[in-house]
Design a binder for these strands. Structure first.
Lengths: 228, 228
DNA sequence: AACGATTGTTACAGCGCCGTGACACGGATC
DNA sequence: GATCCGTGTCACGGCGCTGTAACAATCGTT
C-alpha cells in the first residue's frame, strides 16, 4: 500500500483513532479538523484517498466532496464517507456526490482497513504495493524492482508505471487513450502515439529476458499483456 | 463497455458527476447543457446511449426524446431519462416517449452504472464487453480474443466487429445494409458487396475449426449466424 | 435446359496503422 | 555551466487491412 490518506474529522478522539490505525497499516495519514484545513492540505499535495466525515462544522462533508469532484485536479481522488448513523437517505445523497464507499460509525479498525484497501484496489490496483507476477515477470512496487526469469530488468519511471498497470490488468486490451488516462493521468496533454514509443522502450528493456513477447499489439485497438 | 454516451443535463454539478462516473466505468462521455447543443453533437456522430434530463431549459427532455424518435437516423438510440422525483405520471409520459429506462434522483453511481449496463445489454449487446459464446465459438471483447473449439482464431478488426455483432444477434437474418450500419457505422459510404467479402474472410478464418458453417447465407436477404 | 439474379472467390491497389530510430527539450546532478 | 537521463514528438518505411472490380459459381424461375 503505502498510500497517503487524508482524514477529515472534527472529533479529535476519532480522528486520532483512525490515523493511528492507518499508520499501523503502513499508510501515511494527514489530519484535518474541517474542510478549510483540508482544502489547504489538498492544494499542497494530492492524497491518494480521503476519509471524510459526514457532519463537519462549517462546510459539510457532502459539500466538500462536491467541490473536490468539480475540480479537475481533485476529481479523481477516491472518497470514503464516514457517517454516524446508517440512514438510507444519507447513503443515497452521499453516493450521489461521488463517494466511493461508505462506513457507518461505530466501525472496527478491521473494517476500516478492509474498505480502504478495497477502494484503493478498485480505483487503482497499481497503487498497491502487492507483488505482481505474470509469466516469468515479477514486479515489486515496494522495492521498485522488476525481474524477468530471475534476472533484473531496469526501467525508466514511465515504463515502470506502464508495466505495472499492464501487469495488474492482464488479458485485456487497452486503447492508447485508456493507457494515457491510467498511466500518465487524465489531465495530461500527450500525443497518443507517445504510448507506442514507451511500449517500444518497454519491449526493448524486456528483450534480454525474451519476455517482450508478453506485450502484444492488437491492431486497430491497442495493447495487451498476456502470458500466451 | 466502451460505449459513447451523451449526457444532457443543465446542472453542471450533476453533469460532471455523471460523466465522471461513466468514464470510470470505461465509457466515453459527451456533454451537453441543453437540447440544442445535443442536437449538434448528434448530427456529427451518433452516440450509443443518451442520458437525458427530464427538465431542461428551452426544449424539454420529453420533447427532445420525441424528436429523436421521429428521426430515422436517431430513433434506434437507447435513452435513459433522469428525473428529480419519482412521480408516477412522469414515468408514464417518459416511457411513452420511448425512453428505455428511468432513473430518479438522487441516485447512486452504482445504480447509474447498473442501468446503463442493463440498457446496453438489451439494446446494443455488442457494446458491452461480456463474453459471447455460440456453438463452439467464443469471443471475448475484453481481451479481444476469439477461439473456435478452444483453438485460437485470428481476425482483422472488421472481421472481429462483424463476428461480434453476429454473435450478439444470432438466429436472425441481417441485410447487408443493416450490417453496414451496425458494424461499419452509419455515415460510411461503402459498397454493399463489400459485406460479402468480409463474410468470406470471416468464413475462411473459421475454416480451420470447421465453424465456418455457423455463418449462413439467406439468399435475397442477407446473412445469419446460427449453431444449426 | 436456359437464363437472369444473386452470391462466392480472387486479385490488386491504396491507405492507414504501427514499429523504429533520431532528435530536441527540460530537469537533475555534479 | 556541462553532462546525462528521461521524455515527448516527428518522420520514414513496412506491412496488414480494406474496399472494389472482375470473373466464376450457384440458385431460382420459366
Amino acid at each position: 500500500m503505502a498510500a497517503t490518506i487524508l482524514v477529515i474529522e472534527d472529533e479529535p478522539a476519532i480522528q486520532e483513532l483512525i490515523s493511528y490505525n492507518l499508520k499501523q497499516a503502513g499508510h501515511q495519514a494527514l489530519k484535518a479538523d474541517n474542510a478549510e484545513q483540508a482544502l489547504n492540505l489538498v492544494q499542497n499535495a494530492l492524497p491518494d484517498l480521503i476519509l471524510l466525515d459526514w457532519m463537519l462544522p462549517g462546510i459539510s462533508g457532502v459539500e466538500f466532496a462536491r467541490r473536490l469532484r468539480s475540480d479537475k485536479r481533485t476529481k479523481a481522488i477516491p472518497i470514503i464517507m464516514l457517517t454516524a448513523r446508517s440512514e438510507e437517505q444519507d447513503k443515497l445523497t452521499g453516493l450521489e456526490t461521488g463517494a466511493d464507499d461508505y462506513i457507518t460509525k461505530p466501525f472496527s479498525p478491521r473494517e476500516l482497513n478492509a474498505r480502504v484497501k478495497a477502494v484503493l484496489r478498485r480505483r487503482a490496483p497499481q497503487m498497491t504495493d502487492d507483488l505482481v507476477q505474470v509469466g516469468g515477470l515479477k514486479l515489486d512496487p515496494a522495492s521498485h524492482r522488476v525481474t524477468g526469469n530471475a534476472t533484473p530488468v531496469d526501467l525508466g519511471p514511465t515504463e515502470f508505471r506502464l508495466l505495472h498497470f499492464l501487469m495488474t490488468h492482464p488479458e485485456r486490451v487497452h486503447s492508447r487513450t485508456q493507457l494515457l488516462d491510467q498511466v500518465w493521468g487524465d489531465h495530461v496533454f500527450v500525443e497518443e502515439r507517445t504510448v507506442d514509443v514507451h511500449i517500444r522502450r518497454l519491449r526493448k528493456a524486456l528483450e534480454p529476458t525474451a519476455l517482450d513477447s508478453l506485450i502484444q499489439t492488437v491492431r486497430g485497438t491497442g495493447y495487451r499483456l498476456s502470458p500466451n
